[in-house]
C-alpha cells in the first residue's frame, strides 16, 4: 500500500514539475493571468465601479459576490453538519459517554479569568474594526468573524464551556448563522426585487440616498456583516462540539 501510494505521489509530482517548466517566470508582469482584461479591469476600474479602495474586498463581495455567498453557505453547512454528526439522539444518547481523564472539577484560575476579562473587550472591538475597515485595509467579514468567534472560544477556555454556552448556546449560534446568510442572500434578493439581477447591489440606490457606486459600497458592508454573523457563530459552534465530542458539557 505504501509503495503504491509512493508511486502515485511521485507520478503526480513528475506531472506537476513537467508542467512547471511551462509556467511564465515568477512575478512576470505580462503573464496571461496578470495581463488579462479581467485582472486589468479589477485593478483599473474597481474604484470607478464601486468606490472601494481595497480591490480584494470589492472582488470578493461584489464582482464575485455569488461565490462568496456560497462560501458563507459552506461555513454554515460545516456548522450544521458537525452538530448533525456529533449530536446524540435516541438510543445513542443513553450510551455512556467515554470518560476522559481531564474530566476533573477545577475552579477557573483567578489570574487567567481576570486577564481574559480585560482582553475580551479589546478583541471584540478589534473584530468590529477589522470587519468595518475591510473596505480600505486588509480585513472583512471572514477575518472579523473569526476574531469575534475567538473571543467566545477564549471564554470557554478560561472558564468552561457552559459559561460560554450561557452567552451563546449552540442552538442560538446556528440560528444567528442562519441570520447571517439571510442578511447576505436577503440583500441579493432585495436588489433583485428592485429590478436588477440577484446581488446587483447598484439597484439599492433606489432606496438608499446614494449613487449607484456608493450603493455597492454600502451593500458590501452589509454582506460582510452577514458573513461575520455566520463565521463568528459557526466557529464557536464548531469549537463547542468538537471539544466535547458533541456532549456540550465540561471544560477543555
Amino acid at each position: 500500500m505504501k509503495k503504491v501510494a509512493l508511486a502515485v505521489t511521485l507520478f503526480i509530482g513528475a506531472l506537476l514539475l513537467y508542467a512547471a517548466k511551462d509556467f511564465s517566470v515568477w512575478g512576470h508582469l505580462q503573464s496571461p493571468a496578470s495581463a488579462s482584461p479581467v485582472s486589468k479591469h479589477f485593478i483599473a476600474d474597481t474604484g470607478v465601479d464601486t468606490e472601494v479602495p481595497n480591490m480584494v474586498t470589492a472582488v470578493l463581495a461584489d464582482y464575485r459576490g455569488f461565490d462568496t455567498m456560497f462560501e458563507t453557505v459552506v461555513i454554515f453547512i460545516a456548522g450544521i453538519a458537525i452538530i448533525a454528526i456529533l449530536r446524540r439522539t435516541g438510543a445513542d444518547a443513553d450510551s455512556p459517554a467515554i470518560q476522559r481523564e481531564s474530566d476533573v472539577v477545577a475552579e477557573p484560575d483567578l489570574i487567567v479569568t481576570n486577564t481574559v476579562r480585560l482582553l475580551i473587550p479589546v478583541i471584540q472591538l478589534f473584530a468590529f474594526y477589522v470587519l468595518a475597515h475591510g473596505h480600505v485595509s486588509p480585513g472583512g467579514g471572514f477575518q472579523g468573524g473569526v476574531i469575534m468567534g475567538a473571543s467566545f472560544i477564549l471564554v470557554a477556555l478560561a472558564w468552561d464551556l457552559p459559561k460560554a454556552l450561557d452567552r451563546l448556546s449552540v442552538d442560538r449560534a446556528i440560528m444567528l448563522a442562519g441570520v447571517g446568510i439571510l442578511i447576505y442572500a436577503g440583500i441579493g434578493l432585495f436588489s433583485m426585487l428592485l429590478g436588477g439581477e440577484f446581488l446587483d447591489y447598484a439597484e439599492l440606490s433606489h432606496v438608499l440616498p446614494v449613487s449607484r457606486e456608493m450603493a455597492r459600497y454600502h451593500a458590501m458592508l452589509g454582506v460582510e456583516i452577514g458573513v461575520a454573523f455566520t463565521v463568528t457563530t459557526v466557529m464557536f459552534a464548531i469549537y463547542a462540539n468538537l471539544s466535547t465530542r458533541g456532549r456540550l458539557e465540561g471544560g477543555l
Partner: peptide
C-alpha cells in the same frame, strides 16, 4: 498592483478547507 483575483479565490479555498477539516474531525470523533 498585484493581481487581486487569486487572493480572492484563495480566501474561498481557505474557507472551504476549514469547513472540510471541521467536518472530517467530527467524523473522526
Amino acid at each position: 498592483y498585484a493581481n487581486p483575483l487569486p487572493h480572492v479565490l484563495m480566501l474561498t479555498a481557505i474557507v472551504v478547507g476549514v469547513a472540510t477539516l471541521g467536518v472530517a474531525l467530527a467524523l473522526t470523533q
